[in-house]
Design a protein around this nucleic acid. Sequence first.
DNA 1: TAGATTGTTAATCGATTAACAATC
DNA 2: TAGATTGTTAATCGATTAACAATC
Lengths: 212, 212
Amino acid sequence: MDNKQISKAVIKRLPRYYRYLGELMQEGVERISSNELSEKMKVTASQIRQDLNNFGGFGQQGYGYNVSYLYNEIAKILGIDKQHNLIIIGAGNLGQAIANYANFERRGFMIKGMFDVNPRLIGMTVRGIEIYPIEQLESFIKENDVQIAALTIPKAKAEEMAEKLVSYGVKAIWNFAHTDLNLPKDVVVENVHLSESLMRLSYKVSNMDTGK
Amino acid sequence: MDNKQISKAVIKRLPRYYRYLGELMQEGVERISSNELSEKMKVTASQIRQDLNNFGGFGQQGYGYNVSYLYNEIAKILGIDKQHNLIIIGAGNLGQAIANYANFERRGFMIKGMFDVNPRLIGMTVRGIEIYPIEQLESFIKENDVQIAALTIPKAKAEEMAEKLVSYGVKAIWNFAHTDLNLPKDVVVENVHLSESLMRLSYKVSNMDTGK
DNA sequence: TAGATTGTTAATCGATTAACAATC
DNA sequence: TAGATTGTTAATCGATTAACAATC
């Protein structure tokens, strides 16, 4: 719809704005200036104004930003004002941890089912979400209009499974497998590489400034 | 030790280099040029050479890089050649998922124990890792030389718990709680905000180029 | 109206890419 | 030695910050 290309750095910050605005709403705060918000979030006020102005003028001179209005506008930008149907591939601890996080539903992510190869898990439910055998994947995706699949299986099978999911109509993959997926470029991939995150932590611990 | 400040962008890429070099080693590849690696990883060869040269000349003109040498050097930079003692706070699905990921141990991260407030979990083990009551936290951290704590508890208690951990001597927090932690700046924090990751995915799905 | 604060342009800073001399 | 490829400097690109006119 929009034609201006928004930079990755801006997109990365949007969910954090959303989180802070949600907290402000809960505290009953009605309006906030870029300056106040910048102090809370520890970023520059200039960056906040620049970021938001990528999407339109949400503020008002002399007043600031209306918290709940801005909150809702960011939700629209992020697309979390609409429902997304999601399945989880791999019903191990990580898959179950995701299934158990009820807040995703409040953001419009409906977890329709989980899938696993382990016959002992089939038929079990996690917070009311049923675990199905892989054999039913194709029909399930088509019948439930599934757009997103969370991939929480070992990396050895991840690429193959991702390709299968795409061929069945999945448009986006939330990839927890420790590997990069090579998929057609109209398929969206968001990686969560926990081992890389832990290594970055290790770097920071190991190379901490001992001065000061 | 080193004084030149390495940029965050470089650090972020290091674990990925490490992963690719590990795979090359497994395939028995002995040497690789920045150009070959750049094609595999889909980054520019120039970036690879620039990144690595932040830490020293690991390559050789006319030859390229020795895979296993470079692999080991990156491990040293990341600090994963040394052992790190780790505990997990919160023995729910996410905590257990981390405990179950055996590969962390191969990278030197020894999971010494898990902690939870739920009395029904106390005494249970996950892959040989025992779940202890929170009351034993302080003594356990001191006795086991724990440097890193993975925080997989709800955000309401996260800040308070993080402060406790720091006061007991923990130097780094791997934060899975959906909140920012405000800790002294000599404490390392690495955030894994899954809900933000999912929102970024949502943005990409919602704003995909329909052209082409 | 005067004060406050945005929206937006310009200046600065940092990161990426290109180019090539050094050297194995 | 000639060819290959790094290490490194210079050029480009993009992102952040500063500044201020517009305006509520």
